[in-house]
């Protein structure tokens, strides 16, 4: 899976979990500051990414990821 596909699917998950529109999301978007993620939604995002990409991530490291771009890079490391 190439990085562009990872990015597209990450955006899709973010839109679904945080209930935000696609045009709000850029690689620099901060889940909390820019997209309004509540603390429980961070956990939901991790679970949703794992479901979307059929991967199992390190929880602590995954929860430390705070922007969309960093999430793409983090997940790309699992799916390559």
């Amino acid at each position: 899976m190439d990085k562009a596909e990872v990015e597209q699917r990450v955006k899709k998950v973010v839109c679904q979990v945080l209930n935000v529109s696609d045009d709000m999301i850029t690689p620099e978007s901060h889940f909390v500051f820019d997209l309004g993620a509540e603390s429980t939604q961070s956990v939901e995002l991790v679970a949703a990414f794992e479901g979307e990409f059929k991967i199992e991530m390190d929880d602590e490291a995954a929860l430390a990821v705070d922007t969309v771009g960093a999430a793409v890079d983090f997940i790309a490391g699992y799916v390559k």
Partner: peptide, 10 residues
């Protein structure tokens, strides 16, 4: 006064 909620995505 006036109150504004800052709530990204809402």
């Amino acid at each position: 006064g006036t109150v504004y909620p800052i709530a990204p995505g809402k």
